[in-house]
Design a protein around this nucleic acid. Structure first.
Lengths: 210, 210, 210, 210
DNA sequence: TATGAATGAGTCTTCATTCAT
DNA sequence: GATGAATGAAGACTCATTCAT
């Protein structure tokens, strides 16, 4: 007992307060990415974080709170990365395409975050089912919507409702990203080419009519 | 372990074997739809099936086997329902749209099957992680590919590679269906209109160039 | 693993169903008597019952249910033992005294049951406080009340309200029994004498006025 | 263990020592009253006291010590409040009744203290069982005994042993008070009337013979 | 001095699974 | 052939207590 105590205290005092919290989140994020929400236990989190299980509860009030924090964070990160390309004053269709491309890139570069933010099922704790609405699409969709509205105002879109267009586009890119993440075989060979073709299709689809 | 497992799977019931098995699958499907994979226990399955817990293990070697069987079954069902519209000899773009529409309808009418077939993350039980590739896209994609190839052969598509087009379309409809299933708020208000607009966009995107 | 399994199954198949339930109750009763509600864990109960911890939950849905079952049982036992002396057609004051005596005897012979039935504080689980009214005084008081009413009808009591008299008598004997149970030193030396004197006092108190 | 315990208890705070200690006791008393011994954690105590958890251990060596200190204190308080009415030189039966009444009033006005002093079961923490004798009846009983002895000396009591009489009376009032505290329904409607009747009964019981 | 931070041991409960009948 | 009964392992979470500062 004394021994292990000495050993432990010698290991790593690490950062206090906020740093610890951050460490826990980082470690949990990795675990969540690798194993999925339901297969990650508080013990795993504790070990991966380098703290004891009870310590988790000094920083978060429940396992769900950790996961929720990660959800929100992933959403925010994705959204932040999308900001740049979507705040132009006079966007063109090429800008729309670039913006969608940014979303795809961010998603593929951060597949775990993307999964967490947009592909996570209902949290599957003991409590049974919870509906999916608790985690919304976040600012990503809103930015896209803003862009589409501007384009619509410029008369660059053939369809009437900007909302429909934005949702349609969002669904379009989400389908691609989620499949690429979930099915490594999807688009294998030349992903770049598939992405380009897909975005071209989406852009053409909303801008040109037969 | 391997031995006992083999022995057990050999011990098949004779009486009303297949019917029982079917009952179990049906009951489990309902539970899975309502509560999600992780929240359904063998006890629930047993009760819903009207058999005892051990009896489950006379028909399936593990809980996972039940779920897996349902995965495959859902995939097949979806594929079967898509067949009709995709086996035309001389399809038009309207037929493509109809075919995509069929996919959407099937998915939305059978969200649980769809979720099971295309959106299921790794099973979230105690067992840890399994990669997502185990469940492929099944015949749905292949049928779509066949249709696209025919259209391509007829010179109705602007893009070069039928594979890219098929994947792009698949991604497009999958994105819509999965979002509608996972986020009830998505497309709320007028889903029919969103679907129609989305399909129009997809079709236009692959058939018309600026 | 195999070894311990063999050893265990060789130990004692014991009684199935109701007998097991009974065993659990008996074992828990002993533990509760010795250690008190809050200090008895489900593990202790399981070990004392000769079953595994999860087995407990095949017979009871929670620890609280076990305790509650024991409460009710103790109350019933006490009440049953009191019945005989309290159902006379034309009772006398001596019969009243005998009846009170029966209550005292039952309580002292079964101190744990008495404690459980009448002295248990609020159940002290994790959930915080619950009010004490959940466990009422049971039939014991009602029988006493019936007896008092009969005596009152016969004009043998000086006080007006039978309810007051019955409550007063109940409080009187309860005070004695509970103190004797909780404070072994109380009445030490000659408990019999104290009991007799106490009952005499109570009877006299309700039957004679200055 | 013994060593470190001694060392710790030697490390007494100097600053606002006694006041802090008092604050802790007061806060704990409130908590104990509201939630019961087993449901009060050191964290709750610390928060309610406005100090940190470790600070608790600067003033008390364990949670049990806090509870024990409160036991003794409650007993003393009760006893102090009873003193006045029990130190008459030539008491009458009316004085006896008044004295009992004082006890009842003190108990009902301070139910938590009473519970702590006279109704507390063994402390129900993790530590296991402690016998009930650790907390005796305190000076309350002794004062009552003194009063009874005086009355006995004056020939006002019919029973022979003053000890028996005192114990009997103590049991009588204790039964009433404890039931009223533990079972809010007991005596509901007109508690004042029940108390008066009960005390009349007790007094009559020890003073008059058939 | 007082405390933020941490933890081992423990809580109740549920799981998928396997016997003996 | 089907099941009542049982269980090891694990789940999330809380406790009283003790360090280092």
């Amino acid at each position: 007992m004394t021994v292990s105590r000495v050993l432990r205290s010698a290991r790593k005092p690490k950062g206090r307060g906020p740093e610890r919290r951050e460490e826990i989140l980082v470690a949990t994020f990795r675990l969540l990415s690798e194993f999925g929400t339901g297969a990650v236990s508080t013990r795993m989190i504790a070990e991966a974080s380098g703290v004891s299980q009870p310590t988790l509860y000094a920083y978060f009030s429940s396992k769900e709170e950790i996961v929720t924090a990660l959800h929100a964070r992933a959403l925010r990160a994705l959204s932040d990365q999308m900001r740049l390309t979507s705040e132009l004053a006079h966007p063109s269709l090429a800008d729309l395409q670039r913006s969608l491309r940014a979303f795809v890139d961010v998603g593929l570069q951060n597949p775990d975050g993307y999964r967490l933010a947009f592909m996570s099922e209902r949290p599957q704790g003991r409590g049974g089912a919870r509906n999916g609405t608790s985690v919304d699409l976040g600012d990503c969709y809103l930015r896209l919507l803003g862009l589409v509205e501007t384009l619509h105002g410029q008369g660059l879109l053939v369809q009437t409702g900007p909302t429909n267009v934005a949702q349609s586009l969002f669904a379009g890119v989400h389908g691609l990203v989620s499949l690429m993440i979930a099915r490594p075989a999807f688009g294998a060979g030349d992903r770049e080419r598939l992405i380009a073709a897909h975005l071209r299709m989406l852009t053409a689809g909303v801008a040109y009519a037969p």
